[in-house]
Amino acid sequence: MSQRWLQEIVNLDGVEGVFIASNRAKVIDKIGLDLKDSQLEALSLRILRIIAGYHIKSQKVNEVEFYWQNLYVIGKVASEFILVTFCKTPKVLSLLRITLNVTMANILEDKKFIKVIKDHVADRVFSLEKGEIDESEKNLISKLK
């Protein structure tokens, strides 16, 4: 389904892998990653909580990026899913961002994919209620409203 688009991303030097998760933090498709689905879903949920926080403030998040030494996680945000890429080097980040924009456009035109993702539609703030939420997090979320 979306494998051919994801393959174009992992073909870039330094890209370890990529996955797509729905607004319910469910992994829809992935390629080239050693992490378990449960880890990817936990990671997606955290990104979705950031997006939800901004949604409450009536702001839209387009992308999120996390940088560590030798690991760059780039998340692109569409209305019904997130596309998350793991990259080992900063050298390809510019090219990667361009490739991700093209991939997002291609995926959004893939009718089969859209049909699948529509089955996973969730409210933007769904992530703020799903999964483990500790007390300090709960406290911050309550103060957003």
Binding site: L35, Q39, A42, L43, R46, I47, R49, I50, Y54, Q59, K60, V61, N62, E63, V64, E65, F66, Y67, W68, Q69, L71, V73, S136, E137, L140
Partner: peptide, 24 residues
């Protein structure tokens, strides 16, 4: 907070940097 948790999931510390692009 979410960035720290993502670090935990990936067995890393808090990210050195985190960037977020909104519409504005």
């Amino acid at each position: 907070f979410q960035s720290s948790k993502i670090g935990d999931i990936l067995a890393r510390f808090h990210p050195e940097f985190m960037s977020l692009a909104t519409t504005g």
